[in-house]
Simulated scan of single mutants.
Amino acid sequence: MAKSLISHRPGLAVTLKLSALFLFSIMSALVKAVSDTIPPGESVFFRSLFAIPVILVWLAARGEFPSGLRVKKISGHVWRGLLGTMAMGLNFAGLGLLPLPEVTAIGYATPIFTLILAALILGERIRLIRVSAVAIGLAGVVVMLWPRLGGDLGDAAALGAVLILAATIVRSFVQITLRQMVKTDTTSAIVFYFSASSTLLALLTIPFGWVMPDPTTAVMLVLMGLIGGVAQILITSSFRFADASLLAPFDYVSMLFAIVIGYVWFSELPTLVMLIGAALVIAGNGVVIWREHQLGLERGKARSVTDPKS
């Protein structure tokens, strides 16, 4: 069984979390950089395949190999693999069509959709405070998507917005699946088998036009997997030193990373409308975080296996 929280070291936990978010932002930038020549399915393959050795080394260092890979319910891993791979593919496809900060901002809606699905699928009760949070968050999503879906900025941008929104919704289903999986299987097993299954599932996209990458692109593809694997380990490790309620607000620092990287690498600047929408989504999530802390809900294990950038 994976080790639980072993000590309360909030400074270390925050450092690990921020480091992971920065690496995920770099990984997303790499995906975007190769998107003109590499199809999303091929990017998913490299992202997943080269994360596996990093994860195996991590498990061995923790003394959890191979014991940590035992599973009790295979069905959960199958659904996690299918849904997670779909979300990653949609996200990677959208990254090639939208600015990095905008992709990051729309992704913040995942907890809002998860809250809705938890009520519909798991029967969780949503009272007035949470309903308000959902309303604020959804309003933010509408504000961000309205210019794109209105067609003002071109068909490619509209398609990108639809893809990222779809990825966000599918990722919410992943969260619901994870809430059930952590009751029976270890974090180690969940992380490893997702990388393994998404690697295999990505191979199914070969008929849709994989290409032979040039040396520079190949290096970037490999780095995507290595960086993604390290980021997953860092974000998982952060939950060993602090509660999820303490770490959750730091998710939004990734917007700063996305803005800086987007500007430096792709000469992208966020629009005022996008920032307003993102602020509303973050506000809605903030209400959810506060309410869950008040109720003493434990989402740490599920959040520790969450990949915010796939």
Rank of each mutant, 00 (worst) to 15 (best):
M1E: 04
L5M: 15
I6Q: 11
S7D: 13
R9I: 08
P10C: 09
P10F: 13
G11N: 05
L12V: 12
A13M: 12
V14A: 03
T15V: 11
L16W: 01
L16Y: 02
K17F: 08
L18K: 08
A20T: 03
L23T: 01
S25V: 06
S28F: 02
A29Y: 00
L30T: 01
L30P: 00
K32V: 12
K32Q: 13
K32M: 10
A33P: 02
T37A: 12
P40N: 09
P40M: 05
E42Q: 15
R47K: 08
L49T: 05
F50C: 03
A51T: 03
I52G: 07
P53R: 11
P53W: 05
V57K: 15
R62K: 13
G63M: 13
S67Y: 00
S67E: 03
S75P: 01
H77K: 10
V78H: 06
W79F: 13
G81Q: 15
G81K: 08
G81I: 08
G84N: 09
G84I: 07
M88R: 02
L90H: 03
N91I: 07
F92L: 12
G94S: 14
L97N: 04
E102T: 11
T104W: 00
A105T: 05
I106V: 15
Y108S: 07
T110W: 08
I112T: 12
F113N: 01
L115W: 02
I116N: 12
L117A: 15
A118L: 11
L120E: 11
L122N: 05
L128Y: 06
I129E: 08
I129D: 06
S132G: 15
A139F: 05
V142H: 03
R148K: 07
G150D: 08
G151Q: 07
D155V: 10
A156P: 06
A156W: 01
A161L: 01
I164A: 14
T168H: 11
I169A: 14
V170E: 03
Q175E: 10
T177M: 12
Q180M: 04
V182F: 00
T184S: 15
D185L: 08
F192R: 05
S195W: 00
A196L: 14
S198I: 07
L204S: 13
I206R: 04
P207A: 07
W210M: 04
W210L: 03
P215K: 06
L221Q: 00
L234T: 01
L234V: 03
F239P: 02
A242T: 08
S245T: 06
L246N: 05
L247S: 02
L247W: 01
L247M: 10
A248N: 14
F250E: 02
D251G: 10
V253H: 05
S254W: 01
M255A: 10
M255W: 01
A258R: 00
I259T: 09
V260C: 09
I261C: 15
G262H: 01
V264W: 04
W265D: 03
L272Q: 06
V273G: 11
V273C: 02
V273F: 11
A278T: 04
V281G: 06
A283F: 06
G284N: 10
V287W: 07
I289F: 15
W290G: 03
E292A: 13
Q294R: 12
Q294A: 12
L297N: 14
E298M: 11
E298Q: 14
K301N: 08
R303K: 11
S304D: 12
V305K: 09
S310H: 10
S310N: 10
